[in-house]
Design a protein around this nucleic acid. Structure first.
Length: 237
DNA sequence: GCGACAG
DNA sequence: ATCTTGTCGC
């Protein structure tokens, strides 16, 4: 079953036909999420960052997967993949637009990361199952989501120092993630659990990956790489 | 009912 | 996400 669902996400030809089908697939994948594991300790092993860039004009999408040494934050491996845009941007269904190409880039890696950091949300999601959850369940890897915007969620402004945080709340008051200040005096990032990681650990990783800038080095590296890959793809083919 | 809404 | 110059600052 997971293989069939994975093929839905992996291949352009089996992309969900509409939003209703996408939600049905989302509900299937949700059954596979594991939330009772702490995840790998921060600062050790390999951490991957993934991101995607689009050229809607030419119907192109480029994804990047960058693996860093969690201790030194040095790049261990980089891979990219280019494909066709197979699903529109629909709030709540971002995974179906981004994951096919991201999975292709991850598949090209020769090393296996102990954690994948996504640009977007995990459990902080209208239906409780965002991009980072899909990626985690489909790959089996621990995953977290680090987003730049609070989406539809609310939070009390955390303290101004690096490391200060506040719960990210859904409309019903449920804690779905955390607004985490990765740099003093700068807008926080929004961290949520994807798969096989605790929220505390997700935040510890995010902080460890953001020694200098607001966003984690994984996200920054993947972002610049997929943009470069898109430029190359546009210029070449 | 209408708008807002990760990337 | 993307459209986009110069500019302020380390």
């Amino acid at each position: 079953m997971i293989a069939r669902l994975l093929s839905h996400l992996m291949t352009t030809s089996e992309t969900p036909a509409d939003e209703t089908e996408a939600r049905a697939i989302q509900d299937e994948l949700r059954r596979g999420v594991v939330l009772d594991e702490p995840g790998p300790p921060p600062g050790t092993g390999l951490v991957a960052g993934v991101d995607v860039a689009y050229d809607d004009e030419r119907d192109l999408v480029a994804a990047a997967a960058v693996v860093l040494d969690a201790g030194t934050l040095e790049v261990v491996e980089e891979r990219t993949a280019v494909g066709r845009v197979s699903f529109p941007y629909v709030p709540g269904l971002l995974a179906f637009r981004e994951l096919p190409t991201v999975l292709a880039a991850l598949d090209a890696l020769t090393v296996t990361p102990g954690l994948v950091v996504c640009d977007g949300y995990g459990l902080a999601h209208p239906r409780g199952f965002g991009l980072a959850c899909h990626l985690g369940v489909v790959t089996g890897l621990p995953s977290i989501g680090v987003a730049k915007n609070p989406f539809t969620f609310t939070y009390e402004e955390p303290g101004a120092r690096r490391g200060d945080a506040a719960p990210l709340l859904a409309a019903d008051g449920a804690v779905v993630g955390r607004a985490l200040r990765t740099q003093g005096g700068i807008k926080p990032v929004y961290v949520s659990v994807g798969h096989r990681v605790s929220l505390d650990n997700a935040c510890a990783h995010t902080l460890a990956l953001s020694p200098r800038y607001r966003l984690p080095e994984t996200t920054r590296r993947a972002d610049s790489l997929c943009r470069r890959a898109l430029r190359e793809a546009t210029r070449t083919g």
